[in-house]
């Protein structure tokens, strides 16, 4: 039998928290960006678990939209990171502190 939705929710929560941890612990833009993708995927998993437990297909529709928007976001984000690298020759967030007064 398929595990109950609760198991999927716990997994989604753990995955989301791991994404947050990775975002704060890592110091380079690319890995932080990957951490954002992990968080998005945790959200997707929660959506699908809800869609399954409520028996509705709307959850899957939302997941499709999230994946599409994530793809667009990844394209733009990577383009911006490439621009930053071209100008500064680094992707370490510690060295990008112009806004620090």
């Amino acid at each position: 039998m398929i595990p109950p939705p609760a198991a999927f929710f716990i997994l989604a929560a753990v995955l989301f928290v791991l994404g947050v941890l990775a975002f704060f612990v890592k110091k380079d833009l690319l890995t932080q960006f990957m951490a954002v993708e992990v968080m998005l995927n945790a959200g997707n998993l929660a959506f699908l678990a809800l869609a399954k437990s409520l028996g509705k297909a709307e959850g899957q529709v939302i997941v499709l939209f999230v994946i599409t928007v994530a793809a667009a976001e990844a394209v733009i984000g990577l383009a911006i990171i490439v621009l930053i690298f071209r100008q500064r020759k680094t992707v370490q967030t510690d060295e990008l502190k112009d806004l620090k007064g």
């Binding site: 398929i2 595990p3 998993l45 699908l48 899957q60």
Partner: peptide
């Protein structure tokens, strides 16, 4: 794979 387990083959 987990998505497939949740009856969402397309996702």
């Amino acid at each position: 794979g987990l998505f497939g387990l949740l009856d969402a083959p397309f996702a």
